[in-house]
Computed example of a mutant assay.
Amino acid sequence: MNHSALVIAGPTASGKSGLALRLAHEFGGVVINADSMQVYTGLPILTAQPSMEDQARAPHRLYGVLPPSETCSAERWRDMAAAEMRAAWEAGRLPVVVGGTGLYIRSLMEGLSPVPDIPEPVRAATRQRLAEIGNRAFHALLAERDPEMAARLAPGDSQRMARAWEVLEATDRSLARWQDEPRIGGVAARWHVIALLPPRERLYAACDGRFQAMVETGALDEVRAVAALGLDPALPVLKALGFRELAAHLAGELDLATAIALARQATRNYAKRQTTWLRHQLMASETISAQFSESLMAAIFLKIRRFLLTTP
């Protein structure tokens, strides 16, 4: 394969997992997850992990590999994904990286800013303070000390606010300045990047329909089981789309119809943000402005064959 690799990127419900599966099946590939929620166990339906049937059709890696009590940083995921890519090449297979988490994809292709490791006491103290004072007060504190990073982050983005604060605490330097440094640790490969960006109306309809199907096929039971674990509210897995709304319903705070409506809206908002990021931040080899369908496969297969046969 000459250390070639594919990236299939797209917003939630764009059909990228189906496309990745077809490409892996056709070209002897290994599907490698690049979705920050799908790395965790506990919510396979709510996070739209591939079914067991799909996973039987081609090798799948990094799906449901971490317990919900852990945190998967971009660096941790990058290291795991790089190892899976090397294993695929050694086995004569084509890595097919698929997901919508832009930071993960960029970390693999380009590397990450050289931020030093944050001591665990600093990390723990940051999350404790956030939990004690709440998002808005924490955002105000961040704005006082690091207005540049605060301006980039919404008060609801607790994970990234905590990250900005802990970096400032541990290094006495803004995360923005670290991000100005050259990136390190990217995987050297011949990349072919496909961005699947359906029209907004079709994408939103797919988001709505898929969430309804999740509820009908067991998402509520998943949320009930994970909520019963009593996890730290700051953990990433609890930010999975629809988790907060369905948990509120199970706690008697929302009726089911309202919870579903709110979760659908949150999913559409997230899909819009993903689309914007992918359209402006990802250097795609090709952009497909459509939902994935079998009718696209002949043209895509032809382009991938040409890519794989091209001499570096």
Rank of each mutant, 00 (worst) to 15 (best):
L296P: 03
Y270L: 14
H192F: 15
A143I: 06
L235V: 03
I300L: 00
A9V: 03
R57Y: 05
S69V: 07
L6R: 06
P95M: 10
Y204A: 12
D221K: 06
V237L: 11
E286R: 00
S107E: 05
A56N: 04
V226T: 11
P116S: 00
A188S: 13
R76K: 15
G15I: 07
A234E: 08
A248K: 13
A143W: 09
K16F: 04
D221L: 10
H3I: 01
A91S: 14
S158P: 08
R224E: 00
S295E: 13
L231T: 08
R127Q: 14
N33C: 13
T171N: 07
C72S: 06
A164W: 15
A13P: 05
S113Q: 12
F138P: 08
L141I: 02
M80F: 02
V193C: 04
A228I: 02
M80E: 12
A257F: 00
A189E: 11
R183C: 03
P59D: 12
A251D: 09
V98D: 14
H60M: 13
T12M: 12
Q55L: 07
E132T: 11
P147F: 08
M80C: 05
D180Y: 13
A225I: 09
I105R: 00
S4T: 09
A261S: 10
W77I: 09
V187C: 12
R93V: 01
N135G: 15
R57I: 09
T217W: 11
V115S: 04
A88I: 06
M283T: 15
A20H: 05
T287E: 02
V31H: 05
I8A: 01
F292E: 01
P95L: 04
G92M: 08
F301T: 14
A259R: 06
A234C: 05
